[in-house]
Write a protein that binds this DNA or RNA. Structure first.
Length: 395
RNA sequence: GGGUCGAUGCCCGAGUGGUUAAUGGGGGCGGACUGUAAAUCCGCUGGCUACGCCUACGUUGGUUCAAAUCCAUCUCGGCCCA
């Protein structure tokens, strides 16, 4: 059985937290498993470690005997959560949403327990899609413009003169209505979700039900060390990434993030950490890659990463991404090869990387922008590399 | 609905008829250094199988030898009034 201690690991805030209402009471006074809500909007197809903070917490509740209610926000995704956004989000089509939802679930399986009966999967279009104008008016009348504008993000945008569209006001209410629809006892979310979760609690109470507790988790800071992890900022580690790139990213997380990564992304006892940051980075990378692949694969990734970076030796690597050069017509200029292989985004980028001395074949620097290859034999089996992080085996 | 201001490259932001992919900052990428990090220094940062060509300053059209810069139209937005 999971202890209350573990359930509180990494948690920033639980509200309310007073004599009458708090987590301990809620758990102890209930004669049934609690319903723990987590909503995810399938706005992008991939999950990253940032998403796993809440998912892992949800899993801990599952392991403690409670019921995870995972809400796929297929309806809300089409509105776009304005939280933390400096501008309105582009709206997604139903097809995109359906596709994203599918891949989300695949990935959520890596964290949540999908095999027990302690998981309920819900799509919020099931109830939100059938609200009529009257229902919506009732929802809207539960909040004032002042309350809405007090929400961070809105006030900021309003002050800065960036447009706020009316439908964005609907978002917190819809998320709140989800809580009513599934009768949640506790809702999990990032610290930026406080407002939305409170709306849910209010709506539940208005419906004469007990209001949910909110459990706020930190927003995982991304690899840049400052902004929250997100795909659009490209400071993320994706759940489906290959072991080597996962390892390479994690072994160099900024020093100031090491502890929080351990706390939020692993079960490692924080007091067992070394005083040497470099050691901790490696342990972190090893642990997390191990969680999502296997400890054996993680070790292999570690060895490969060390070979590449320390010795520049790209020989005898384990699995690294490959690129088939069969379809290329020779002679082929180096810059063109870099582009079609995906190592560089454009020919122009290729050229500047070559000029910068970033391009290597089998560890040999090629600084000549006009360099070209005459035959397949020159390339087959070799490793082409741009910078320290991007490399491909040519086959 | 009326008035007024505005729309520039990933972001912010100069530029107000004439070498030019377009000052500067941020971010990103790369190199050196290092702990594979941070800090620092240096370089790159529209696209194209490319010593040339193409596309770019919200849209469309116009004036001009010449426009991101002038005029008109439209679209979108901020603010004020109703």
């Amino acid at each position: 059985m999971v202890s209350l201690n573990l359930l509180q690991r990494g948690v920033v805030e639980i509200f309310p937290n007073n004599e009458q209402e708090n987590l301990t009471n809620r758990i102890n006074q209930s004669d049934r498993p609690l319903r723990i809500k987590l909503g995810i909007d399938p706005t992008r197809p991939d999950l990253h470690l940032g998403h796993t903070v809440a998912l892992r917490k949800l899993r801990q509740f599952q392991d403690a005997g409670h019921i995870a209610v995972l809400i796929i926000g297929d309806f809300t995704a089409q509105i776009g959560d304005p939280t933390g956004k400096s501008e309105a989000r582009p709206r997604l089509t139903p097809d995109e949403v359906a596709h994203n939802a599918q891949t989300y679930l695949e990935q959520a399986k890596k964290v949540l327990d999908f095999t027990s009966d302690r998981l309920e999967l819900k799509y919020n279009s099931a109830w939100l899609g059938s609200l009529n104008l009257q229902d919506i008016t009732t929802l809207l009348s539960s909040m004032t413009v002042g309350q809405m504008l007090a929400k961070e993000g809105f006030s900021e945008r309003y002050g800065k003169g960036t447009p706020i569209y009316l439908h964005e006001f609907l978002y917190p209410l819809m998320q709140g209505y989800d809580s009513v629809a599934i009768a949640s006892d506790i809702e999990l979310g990032g610290t930026d979700q406080k407002f939305n979760i409170l709306v849910g609690r209010d709506l539940q109470i208005k419906e004469q039900k007990q209001g949910q507790l909110g459990m706020l988790l930190p927003l995982l800071v991304g690899l840049d060390g400052t902004q929250k992890m997100s795909k659009s900022l490209d400071n993320y580690v994706g759940l489906t990434e290959d072991p080597l790139s996962m390892y390479s990213k994690l072994e160099k997380v900024p020093d100031n993030l090491i502890n929080s990564y351990f706390e939020l992304l692993t079960d490692v006892d924080i007091s067992s950490l070394s005083s040497n940051p470099r050691e901790n980075q490696k342990r972190l990378a090893l642990t997390i890659v191990g969680q999502y692949h296997s400890s054996k694969i993680a070790l292999q990734a570690q060895q490969d990463a060390e070979k590449i970076v320390l010795s520049g030796n790209t020989k005898d690597l384990g699995k690294i991404p490959e690129f088939a050069i069969a379809s290329i017509t020779f002679p082929v200029p180096l810059f063109y090869l870099l582009k079609v292989s995906g190592l560089c985004k454009s020919n122009s980028e290729s050229l500047s990387q070559i000029n910068n001395g970033a391009v290597r074949l089998e560890g040999e620097k090629i600084p000549n922008p006009e360099f070209s290859f005459n035959s397949v034999e020159e390339l087959t089996g070799k490793i082409l590399q741009v910078g320290k992080k991007k490399f491909l085996r040519l086959i």
